[in-house]
């Protein structure tokens, strides 16, 4: 497991179809253990990303808000 690898996905302004798609694309090629930080200004991501992480067997590590931009962090699971 590579616990230290981190990726940042800048999905600010990703309204069509949305930030979760950008996260999915990054997650597809990420090694297990990788922490992906998703930058988004779509508040709906706060609901979708934890749901998606649970569904996919990833770990949702939480959110931070700076200005109007949320940073949502997901750790890729081993599935």
């Amino acid at each position: 497991m590579n616990q230290n690898k981190k990726l940042r996905v800048d999905a600010r302004g990703a309204f069509c179809p949305g930030p979760l798609m950008e996260l999915m694309r990054a997650a597809k090629d990420a090694e297990p253990g990788t922490e992906i930080e998703l930058l988004t200004n779509d508040a709906g991501s706060r609901k979708d990303v934890p749901l998606w992480a649970e569904k996919m067997g990833h770990k949702y590590l939480g959110e931070q808000l700076e200005g109007n931009v949320y940073t949502l962090t997901v750790q890729i699971g081993g599935n």
Binding site: P17, G18, L20, M21, D42, K47, D48, W52
Partner: peptide
């Protein structure tokens, strides 16, 4: 995705 589209 979680709904029928990606933006809330």
């Amino acid at each position: 995705l979680a709904g029928p589209y990606g933006t809330a």
